[in-house]
Nucleic acid binder design. Structure first.
Lengths: 347, 347
DNA sequence: GTGAAAGCGCTAACAG
DNA sequence: CTGTTAGCGCTTTCAC
């Protein structure tokens, strides 16, 4: 354990140097693990450092080196557990690289006075991880001239910025195909209106699967809805009003699926006996839903890790292996889907 | 919109000074809103700052002033949505104070090599928010001599460190009393073994409510269990093996309650027709459980806000109004509890 | 009101 | 191998 020195303030490199009877740069060299220090000198310095519990002042180092060791993670909001594993993954990798993660929540505030854009400029951070960025945010970031990586890039496809995404199209395709394989023909999709690219890809995947099965696309079965519980609920209520309701519902994400469950339960329709439901994301609570929800797994931890890894490479000016990665989704079968043949018919 | 200057690098205060035709300290004064600058000079400097999109270098300022504007939030882990509103609340207040939040997840790593304790020492942060700290962590933090605030202090009651907690005892009491008022007499509690102070208070509240109702404490009804789903599940399975099973279950937290639901569902026991269940925390998903879970609301956003507010005061050396706050919990009635009289009896 | 001078703690370049 | 010198960009006395 480090011994406390009499003064309240932490020792500086200068004091350590004086006590060890060497010059300041020598201490600095020891601190930075440089080889051009005599073994004996190194040991003496190390002993003093240990004894006085010396720790480098980061601000001074940052000023000198032009790097702060800080990475900013910018999220639209902090009240959705969807983001948690992304946070965790990014945090892990950033820490492994000896840096720290600064958290920013934009709350969808006007980009205009977005503080984080200044943070990108004032050299207080080395790089930025931007989750669900808008087109405008990306533009401003490009001008700031600091390394950044996009997570769930919502910008145009032409954008060549480093980014990490998931296979939303394939996810939508696979989810729909799963229902198709179970014999379902009238399959609804919820989440049509969401302007995010992931939402657009999901519905495109849904349509492609239908198309591959030579099934027509029924606009009545494509419901509006943002990625939240209440929209899943309303869409389901509407769906059940239809002359010919669907036998299966593909919810654009798990929150919506929870709303689907709630609406169905209110109407006395049981899952999967009378309705098959599939979600997207594989949030933890879907495993304990009743019945457990079949869903598409979105590799969120890996999303955070991959993005952070690219950013760290960028910061260290080692070109990353690939600056644009797409992580695969996969189907998680649980108990919310059933073959149409075994499913009871509604009047 | 700030115009870009020809050079790639951001302008420094020196360049701004030169362009505006004033000295460096004058620019600094303008930047810091000092009054001893002629109106005309100020405007000229401001114009140049605006035009060149100048932003202060934080590292330099931090070095000079000894403050970094960074607050470290240290969490045991990042994979439990319980922490999310705490994060959000802390983030809000920290940002309102013009500072930024650095995130650290200890993953319950040995305190020995805890990096965050160094961060506390190296002047790279101005203060620390410690969630669910161990006794040892607190001791080390006290030695580090930097402001800190504890959230969910698990340390001894004697500890006088600034802290924010919730009324776990009252929560336990109210939850139990609610069940008692409903006519239940055999009420189980899950979460006995958890060593955290909140767990201890909850069971104490449970016992006190029983005691107040002149009911004996049956050790068989006090189940072991950490605050997770699986332990709630196992405890429930065990409870149902009892010769005389409980008619109501008080789960130490919502994750456990989810496990209770799962076990009950497997056994074909319906909630609340055959078993009343109450949880603790009021996590978002409890509202969409089936049936929606009655639970004790833990004000987590406020926890984060309050802790951050105290820390900000401490950092600014304004003594906070109170350095030790306890936030009230309250009952959220939903549909998982029913009067014993209306509840079906199990064989 | 304004600016010259000093220095926060550290690292990099180079001379010895 | 070691130490001297020179700043990184900013804020702070303190003369003028």
């Amino acid at each position: 354990m480090a011994k406390r020195h009499k003064t309240d303030s932490r020792p500086t490199i200068a004091e350590i140097a004086q006590i060890a009877g060497v010059s300041i740069p020598t201490v600095s060299k020891v601190l930075n693990g440089r080889t051009d220090v005599a073994q004996q000198t190194r040991e003496r310095v190390e002993r003093v450092i240990e004894e006085y519990g010396f720790v480098r002042n980061r601000a001074a180092r940052a000023l000198r080196k032009g790097k702060t060791g800080l990475v900013d993670l910018v999220l639209p909001r902090l009240d959705d557990e969807y983001f948690l594993p992304i946070l965790e993954g990014a945090s892990q990798v950033v820490r492994e690289a000896g840096m720290r993660l600064v958290l920013t929540s934009t709350h969808y505030h006007s980009e205009e006075d977005a503080q984080w854009i200044n943070d990108a400029t004032d050299r207080s951070i080395d790089g930025i991880l931007l989750v669900l960025p808008t087109e405008e945010a990306i533009e401003r970031l490009e001008q700031a001239g600091r390394p950044f990586v996009l997570i769930h890039n919502q910008g145009g496809l032409l954008n060549m910025a480093p980014s990490v995404r998931i296979t939303s199209w394939e996810g939508g395709f696979v989810a729909t195909q799963h229902l198709l394989n179970l014999g379902h023909r009238r399959i609804a999709y919820i989440g049509k209106t969401s302007p995010t690219r992931d939402a657009i890809e999901r519905i495109a995947g849904y349509r492609a699967a239908l198309d591959a099965a030579h099934l027509p696309i029924d606009p009545q079965l494509e419901c509006a809805g943002e990625f939240n519980e209440i929209d899943g609920y309303h869409a389901t209520r509407a769906l059940l009003q239809l002359a010919e309701p669907p036998t299966a519902i593909f919810a654009g994400n798990d929150h919506q699926a929870a709303g689907v469950y709630r609406a169905l339960h209110e109407l006395g329709i049981t899952v999967p006996d009378e309705m098959s439901v599939i979600g997207f994301d594989n949030l933890p609570y879907t495993a304990i839903m009743n019945p457990p929800l079949t869903t598409i797994h979105a590799p969120r931890l890996e999303l955070g890790r991959a993005a952070a890894a690219i950013l760290v490479s960028l910061i260290n000016e080692k070109p990353p292996e690939t600056a644009r990665v797409v992580l695969p989704t996969h189907l998680v079968e649980r108990q919310s889907c059933r073959p149409l043949a075994q499913q009871a018919h509604r009047p």
